[in-house]
Design a protein around this nucleic acid. Structure first.
Lengths: 121, 121
DNA sequence: TTGAAATATTCCCGTATAGGAATACAATTA
DNA sequence: TAATTGTATTCCTATACGGGAATATTTCAA
């Protein structure tokens, strides 16, 4: 048997393109009802509701009722763990000197590998 | 019928905790052979190889042969799209003033909602 | 050449998941 | 109250996916 991680965490939530799109829409357009998202996304209402459910489960969005509509609002703070994690690797591309250094190292390694392969052949 | 996105992109690749762990190991320990990762992760060798395959497919890692071993190396540049995407939302938590402002707005909205609900009742 | 080591690949299983259709439910309106 | 609107939930199906077992493949060593 093999159980899946099922880590329904923020990383998983933003892995879905549709959900990233919803986040973007809420970020740019502010609070929005489900129906608006449905029209914008051109996706079935149940599908949208389910994506919103996932986002809700990781607290990336909050809901408030307004009449018979449910207004969804982005809670982008929950993206901070993702930001913090990926920020650790920023050095790998951000600094010019780092880029040059990395490329030099790569070239050296490739050369090394090539020579080794030639030697091993 | 319903087709899944199967967007085997970088976002999807880092959604898996094991794969994030592999990335972290390669970042801190540098180039490593599969066997090392297997021992460190305490996961079956096929499973590790498959995760590495996913990371390879999105170019998050590169391989080079060294003897009968395959040395995996992190190519963290491919994380830049994730960084860029999530960075757009940094403002939602980073600045003190922004936080205060956001909270004030939230409070005001909640108050508004509450009053509206009371009115509607 | 034969055997062992390192890794990838294939097959299998159980579970997760996206999306549609149908339905349930809540709130508004006639 | 009855009909309608907006949304969530349930059921269903096809597919994806993680992981183990077994196997294939490549490379090194004896």
């Amino acid at each position: 048997m093999a159980r899946a991680a099922t880590t329904s965490d923020v990383f998983n939530a933003i892995a879905e393109p549709r959900r990233r799109q919803i986040i973007e829409l809420l970020a740019s357009g502010g609070e929005q009802a489900v129906g608006e998202l449905v029209r914008t996304l051109r996706l079935g209402q149940p599908a949208v509701s389910k994506h919103l459910g996932v986002l809700r489960s990781v607290r990336l969005v909050t809901v408030s009722r307004r009449g018979r509509r449910r207004m969804y609002r982005l809670n982008a703070r929950e993206l901070k763990p993702v930001f913090d994690w990926v920020k650790m690797y920023e050095q790998f591309w951000s600094h010019h000197l780092t880029r040059i250094k990395a490329r030099a190292e790569r070239k050296a390694r490739e050369q090394f590998d090539q020579e080794r392969e030639e030697h091993e052949t």
